[in-house]
Structures are given as structure tokens and as C-alpha cells.
Design a protein around this nucleic acid. Sequence first.
DNA 1: ACCTGAACACCGTTCAAGT
DNA 2: ACCTGAACACCGTTCAAGT
Lengths: 225, 225
Amino acid sequence: MTDDASSPRRGRPPRGATRLTRESIIEATLEVVDADGIDAVSMRTVARTLGVDAKSLYNHVRGKDDLLDAVAEQLLGGLVFPALTGDLRGDLRAIAYGFREGALLHPAAAPLVLTRQLSSWEGLAPVEAVVGVLLRAGCPPDEAVHLLRTLAAMLIGTLLREVSAGPTFGVDDGIAARREALERSGLPAIGEVGAHLARFDREVEFAFTVDLAIDAVAARLSASR
Amino acid sequence: MTDDASSPRRGRPPRGATRLTRESIIEATLEVVDADGIDAVSMRTVARTLGVDAKSLYNHVRGKDDLLDAVAEQLLGGLVFPALTGDLRGDLRAIAYGFREGALLHPAAAPLVLTRQLSSWEGLAPVEAVVGVLLRAGCPPDEAVHLLRTLAAMLIGTLLREVSAGPTFGVDDGIAARREALERSGLPAIGEVGAHLARFDREVEFAFTVDLAIDAVAARLSASR
DNA sequence: ACCTGAACACCGTTCAAGT
DNA sequence: ACCTGAACACCGTTCAAGT
């Protein structure tokens, strides 16, 4: 009941793929993440989807940590930012939405992009885009860096919640129940807003946060001018 | 060369502590996190610091995930928010700094508080505080919830970076080297701000982000009134 | 009620072979 | 140059005992 003698399990990968490669390993890791989440990633599961022994991966990757960094870098590198128009608000909005779109391409993998600190070149592209827009709008360099960091924190915080928000997305029944629980909490302010706290629309929340952030940046720039 | 016969390793915990308890387990977990980081937490390491077998923990905790949730909840429960004065800006600032202070009490454990979504009662206290301030300032309920979520995202994003920022804190040599690398990156905007991008002062960055956020909230409230 | 021995199905990683 | 067998020191968790 074990492998048939004609099974192609020895010596060569059974997947039609050409050869074991850093790229193919990253791709396989992304497959595992998409299918079963980040926690399901192990050297063994990744190797299994490639039809290879786990130890073979070490010929192309320094270890599991390096592999996860590589996945994050690849996703970051895939981000596309639209051409800038010179309009501060429009350009910042385009960058934010471009970042979100890229991060949500593989929602389960998003925490990798959002929380790993990569010392690589890839991470600089979004930074360059944002700082470029701010400088062109007349922002002094030190304030541009502060604004960049605040914008990044907002974007990361918002997207992290978006990809890991578990409940609040169930059936309408869940919303009603959640609302009731909140209103029964005994906390007065929460009771007053329970109806709104029980719902969560990803697009609406993202739009609100981006609008607020851009308003804040614009206000700062016109103040410092 | 194994345990001496008089070793108190059998039957009773060698630590002076009274008894194995959910609280003592949480405390021991926090010890492990503080000493060696979140990744060092395992049922075995936690049990070891208590002088107990790992399997004993299952009498008080549903599993590792439940244990980490419990740690996050305990830290959340320990947050102290100053009495509210009725001044929107002052009160929001006090809540933000109270949250930060609590989160940084155990910096290595902060990601637990910031990223785990707890369905527990503990998480509602900060929510109640923020929403209460907003409502008292005349904010309509739906906008109060949106503002709450945006503020939370900013706070979480900022604190997450603060606790996981690895480099940029080394010797001054590191700053100079980093600055040169950034200016050599070939990206024009980054080149212009490299000197500022190479430095990172936690207090200054936090203050900047909180100020910006509060300005933005105040602007929204006066607009919607 | 609480603790442990034995056991299971996993991990990441190294190193000396093999081709 | 690249892959694997054997091996090591780990994991989380269950369950049937023991007190």
C-alpha cells in the first residue's frame, strides 16, 4: 500500500516545474499561505508542495526566516504605483490604494508585508513615492519624514486589522447578536454606539481613514508654508 | 550525574509559589517573553520556569493560543487611563499616552496586545474611553466609531513599529552609515531626506503622530458641527 | 482536582554522504 | 551543484493512569 514502483517520487520533482529555485520556493510558500495561512508554513509543507525534501530548500534559502522575508520582499516588489500627477491629495490617495490593492492580493500573506522589517531595497519604493509627493508639495525634509512615518503607521494599522478581522463578517444574525452584547456591556458610551460598532465595512473604513489622513497632511502643509 | 535523591523535583513545584494557577502561568509566560521574546514561549519553556511539566499547564489553560490571549488580556486589563477633564484634545492625548505607557511596560509582549483580536471584555475599556470623549464633544455616533477605528489603527501602527524597530538605534556610526546608504540609493526623494530618514526618536515620532491625529479629529468635529 | 509517563505527529537545521 | 539519509534537539497535545 506504499508508493507504486512507477511513482516518480525519487530523484526528480514530480511537479512539471523545471528545477528547484529560490523563485519556485517563494511561489510555493505563497501557495501554502493562501491555502492554509501563515502558521501552516513550514519547511516541510513548502517542500511537500514542490515534491521535494525539506532539507533541499536550504540550498536556496538561508532558513525559514529568510524564506518569509523573501516572500514579503516579493510582494512588496510587486506593488504598482500609478503615475503621479502633481496633485498632493490625488497622488497620496493613489499610493494608499495601490498599496492596499497589492497587500490584499494575498490577504493571508499581508501580515508578512506589514510587520516584517526588511532591510532590503524593495521596501524603499513606497517610501520614495510618498516622500516624493510631499517634497514636490513644498514640504520641508524633516517634516516629510515625520509625515511619511505617520502615514505608514495608519496604513499598516488599518490593513492589519482589515486582513485579520475575523468576526463581524458572518451572517446578519452575527451583527445583531454582537450589537446586543455591546449594548448590554454596561459601558455607557459603547452602549450609545453599539449599532455602529457591530458593523464593519472594509472599503468604507479604509476610505474614511485615508481621507482623514490626507486632510491632516494637507492641513500641516498649508500651515508650514 | 542526574538529580540528587533529595532534589525536590517530584510532586511539588520547587518555586516557593503556592500552587499552579492560571495567574502564575500567565506571569511565567510574561517572564519568558521579557527575557527571550515571544518566539521563546512554548508550553515547555513556560512550564520549566515554573518547575512543572508542560502538560500540567493544560489543567489551567486551553492551549498555547489561549495562553497568549490570556497574556494579552492581562496586559490590556492593566492599562490605566487618567480621569477625563472634558477637554477633547487633552483627554485624547492622555488616553494615547496611557495606552503607550501600558504597552511599553513589557515591550517584547506588546505585539500580543496590538495584534491579537480578543473577544473579551478587557478590550472594551479603551474603546469606551475614546468613544466617551468623542460623544461628549458632540460627535455623532457613526462618526465616533469611524474616528475610533482610525485612531486605533494609528496607535497600533505606531506602537508596533516602535517595539519592533531593530536598527536605527545602534551607535552613531550606524546612523551615519545608514544615511550614506540611503543617499546612495539612487532614489531622488530618499536622497534628499536621507539625513532625517536615518534617525528615529521614539518619543518624538509618537508625539508627532498623536498631535497630527488629534488635529485631524478636532478638524472633523468642528466641520460636522 | 491536579499532576505525570508514555506516546504521537509534528518542527528547524546540520552534516556527511551520494549523484 | 544540488539532493537526501540519518540524526538532533526541539514542538503542541491527548489520554490513561497515578495521587
